[in-house]
Design a protein around this nucleic acid. Structure first.
Length: 259
DNA sequence: AAAGTAATCAACCGCAGGTTG
DNA sequence: CCAACCTGCGGTTGATTACTT
C-alpha cells in the first residue's frame, strides 16, 4: 500500500500506548491532531483517538457482556438502530466499537440459526443463542424477545445485523455529539483494565515535576480508579515506565508549549 | 497433532457535521 | 458567510485466537 510517509499503521506497541496516555493526560482527550504531533507518535490524530477511546481509556470494562448489557444492547438497538456511539453511552465502560462487534457477531449467529430453524420454526432459538453465556438471561420472556424477531432481522442474511433502527428519526432529533462518556450512576462494580498504567502514571507524575506544571488536563477520566487490566505493559517497573514516558526533549516540548 | 473454519477484536477508511478563523 | 480543518461516527477489513474435524 502507498502509505503516507512517516505515518505508522497497524497494531499499537506498548511504548506507543504509554506515550499516548502521557500526552492525553497532559493535553486532554480532545485535540487529537495536536496530540499526534506533539507526542512524536507517527500516528494520525484519528488513530490516536481510536486507540484511546477503544483501548486506553481508564473507564473501559473488558470481558464478556453481562446479560444485563446484552439486554440493553438489544433494547437500545431497537430504539436507535446502528447508532453505536449512542448505545455505548448507555453502557458505561463499553465502546461503540465493542458493541458494534458484539452485535455483528451475535446477529450473525442468530441469522444462521434462524436460517436453520426456518424449516422448523422454534421461537426460542434466537433468544437462547443471544444469551448463550447466561442462563439467567430474561430475554426470552421480556419485551426484548420481540426485538430479535424484527422483520429486518428476518430479512436477507446480508444485512443480518443492520436494522437501520426503528425509531431512528424520532429517537434523537438534533442530537448533539458530545464525545464525552456519559457515565451514569451505576450499581454494578466496574472492572477497569488499566490499573497499573494509571498507578505508574500517578507515580511518575508525583516524581516528575518537569511535567507536573503542565498538568491542567480537562478530562474527568482521571478520576477513575482502574483495578484490573490485561496489559503487561502496565506492570513494568517504575524506572522502565518513566523512561518510556520521556519521549520529548525539553526544548522540543517547550517549543510546542510556547508556540 | 495438524489443518480448516469460525469467532473475536483491533484498527483503518470515508464521510458528515461541527468549529474556527 | 465561507472555506479549511478537526472530530466523531458507522462500516468494513485483516489479524489473531479458539474451536472443530
Amino acid at each position: 500500500m502507498m502509505e503516507k510517509e512517516g505515518v505508522r499503521k497497524g497494531p499499537w506497541t506498548e511504548q506507543e500506548d504509554v506515550q499516548l496516555v502521557l500526552y492525553v493526560n497532559l493535553f486532554g482527550d480532545r485535540r487529537w491532531d495536536f496530540i499526534a504531533k506533539v507526542s512524536g507518535l507517527k500516528r494520525t490524530g484519528k488513530s490516536c483517538r481510536l486507540r484511546w477511546v477503544n483501548y486506553l481509556h481508564p473507564g473501559l470494562k473488558r470481558g464478556k457482556m453481562t446479560p444485563h448489557e446484552e439486554r440493553l444492547v438489544l433494547e437500545l438497538h431497537s430504539k436507535y438502530g446502528n447508532r453505536w456511539s449512542r448505545i455505548a453511552r448507555k453502557l458505561p465502560g463499553r465502546t461503540d466499537n465493542e458493541i458494534k462487534n458484539y452485535w455483528r457477531t451475535h446477529m450473525r449467529k442468530m441469522a444462521q440459526e434462524r436460517k436453520k430453524g426456518a424449516a422448523s420454526p422454534s421461537p426460542s432459538v434466537s433468544a437462547s443463542s443471544l444469551s448463550s453465556n447466561s442462563s439467567s438471561s430474561s430475554i426470552s420472556n421480556s419485551p426484548t424477545a420481540e426485538l430479535i424477531s424484527t422483520p429486518a432481522l428476518q430479512a436477507k442474511e446480508r444485512s443480518f445485523y443492520d436494522t437501520g433502527g426503528m425509531e431512528l428519526v424520532a429517537a434523537a432529533p438534533g442530537e448533539k455529539k458530545t464525545g464525552a462518556l456519559e457515565l451514569e450512576a451505576e450499581e454494578s462494580p466496574k472492572v477497569y483494565s488499566m490499573e497499573d498504567i494509571w498507578k505508574d502514571f500517578e507515580f511518575s507524575q508525583e516524581n516528575s515535576n518537569q511535567l507536573m506544571s503542565c498538568q491542567a488536563v480537562a478530562s474527568p477520566i482521571w478520576d477513575y480508579c482502574p483495578t484490573d487490566h490485561p496489559l503487561q505493559l502496565w506492570s513494568m517497573d517504575d524506572e522502565e515506565s518513566r523512561m518510556l514516558m520521556q519521549p520529548m526533549g525539553d526544548d522540543h516540548f517547550h517549543s510546542f508549549m510556547t508556540g
